[in-house]
Amino acid sequence: MTDTAAREMPLEPENELQDDVAVVDDHGSDIAGHDDHEGHHSSLGLSNMKLAMWLFLGSECLLFGALISTYLLSKARFLTELVALNPRVLDGLRDGGMPEELIQEFIAEGSVEPIFDIPFTSGSSFILLMSSLTMVFAHKAVSEGNYRNSRVWLAATALLGSTFMAGQVYEFTIFFREGLTYGGSLFGSGFFTLTGFHGAHVTGGIIMLLSLLVLSFRGKLQSNRAETVELVGLYWHFVDIVWVLIFTIVYLIP
């Protein structure tokens, strides 16, 4: 659901902003009589879209908070049962095809760390972080009306995001081959759900970025629409920050 909501929010401003353009053109500074979606004035001095985006991101905090808590609980319970050699938990891992050495490593270390490839994930995390930087540049370029740069930076952001996603898909494949299946263990369920949810958010962001790029090539992304880019940027930065949190909690903290 959040995915859908996420996708439609940034698409919405196109119309709102069209109105503004029109109104401004027609009546100079006089937009108060125009009572469309954008309203006659803004009590907070913040556009409706931006306020809505902040509210949406506030709601997303609770979503990821609940998912992260679920993951932490699932991992803890999984490890407790595994270290206690609960036969059902062991069978669950073996049925997924997990090699015995890896299971023994889990048990010996009392941690799920052996399955992670920290350098690889650090790399893809770095890529995702860099995309926040390019996103900032993209917004700057659009506000300055620099269309060529805005396209370059938007494309770069989308590309970096896609690279991160490719990394996640690759990582999932490797984990799956190593026997960490979705239904085989509590840890698998928690891990794939949390990172998968984040991945879906990144994918949603990439779709938004590509839509902006299409708009730009159709000449509809002028500086008066910088706010649309800013909103996508807000979402994108949020998704990045959430990843920093997830990366720390899932991969780095033993």
Binding site: T70, L73, N86, R88, G183, S185, S189
Partner: peptide, 14 residues
């Protein structure tokens, strides 16, 4: 629907 174990007590869920 997808066979996850979040509430599967047999695998240690709470």
């Amino acid at each position: 629907l997808f066979g996850a174990n979040f509430f599967n007590v047999e695998l240690g869920a709470d």
